[in-house]
Computed example of a mutant assay.
Amino acid sequence: MEEKRASDSFTIMNELVLPNDTNVFGNLMGGRLMYWMDIAAAMAAGKHCNAPCMTASVDNLSFKNPIKLGNIVHIEAKISRAFNTSMEIHLRVWGEDSLHQYSYESNEAYFTFVALDPNGKPRPVPAVIPETEVEKKLYDGALRRRQLRLVLAGKMKPDDAVELKAFFVQAQ
């Protein structure tokens, strides 16, 4: 299977925040934003592996600034690393206030997707080639984030999370 550049999966999605998307404070509801982020991540995953994909996990969804009614939501998604059948997608979200002419960072998250074969079973995905410094940094951290996800899900014993342990324990 041929490797693919991280940049080949780059996806941008834009949405306008309408009244039905907001809470009583006039802010975009977190669930609606997660829904849009899931769609953007699915598009990036599909670009990477040319196969149907499904969400396996969502982690580290950080809400930094609310996005207001009438603002535009910009979502950027890109593969940070691929494993055997799964892919980690890094997402960044900005709000844009068109009236006052400024943009602001709103959210960041990591989603994991699994590629599916025609029978709905996990299938292998191409490896990722990181090119920029940011892509390399995200790629290098992805293994630790994956091990943390697996430990928290009970699918890996903490002692087996070698990369993650090395991050916290200094060599003697």
Rank of each mutant, 00 (worst) to 15 (best):
M1H: 15
M1S: 15
K4E: 09
S7A: 14
D8N: 10
T11Q: 01
T11W: 00
T11K: 00
I12C: 10
I12N: 09
M13Y: 14
L16Y: 14
V17Q: 02
N20E: 13
N20W: 10
D21A: 04
T22H: 02
G26C: 08
N27F: 10
G31M: 04
G31P: 00
L33I: 06
M34A: 10
Y35L: 11
M37V: 07
A42T: 06
A42K: 02
A44C: 01
A44T: 00
A45Q: 00
H48R: 02
N50Q: 11
N50G: 04
A51Y: 01
P52D: 03
P52E: 11
M54L: 04
M54R: 03
M54F: 02
V58G: 02
V58M: 06
N60Y: 02
N60T: 07
L61R: 01
K64F: 05
N65G: 00
I67M: 01
K68A: 14
K68L: 12
N71W: 02
I72A: 05
I72L: 15
I75W: 03
E76V: 02
E76Q: 15
I79F: 04
S80W: 07
R81W: 06
A82S: 15
F83V: 11
F83S: 06
F83N: 12
N84C: 04
T85M: 07
M87G: 04
M87T: 03
E88K: 05
E88S: 15
I89H: 03
H90M: 12
H90P: 07
L91N: 08
R92Q: 10
R92F: 06
R92L: 06
R92N: 11
V93E: 15
W94P: 13
G95L: 02
E96D: 14
E96R: 13
L99A: 09
S103G: 14
S103P: 09
S103E: 14
S103D: 10
Y104H: 12
Y104G: 10
Y104Q: 08
E105Q: 07
E105M: 08
N107G: 08
N107F: 10
N107D: 14
N107M: 06
E108F: 10
E108V: 11
Y110E: 03
Y110C: 04
F111H: 14
F111T: 09
T112K: 11
T112M: 14
T112D: 10
F113W: 09
V114K: 12
V114C: 13
L116Q: 13
D117P: 09
P118F: 15
N119E: 11
K121V: 12
P122F: 13
R123S: 15
P124R: 12
V125A: 13
P126A: 05
V128W: 08
I129H: 12
I129S: 09
P130R: 05
E131P: 04
E131D: 14
E133P: 00
K136T: 14
K136V: 11
L138S: 02
A142Q: 02
L143W: 04
R144T: 07
R144E: 07
R145F: 01
L148M: 06
R149V: 05
R149I: 03
V151L: 05
L152K: 10
A153D: 07
G154E: 05
K155H: 04
M156F: 00
M156I: 01
M156R: 03
K157I: 03
A161D: 03
V162T: 06
L164F: 13
F168S: 13
Q172V: 10
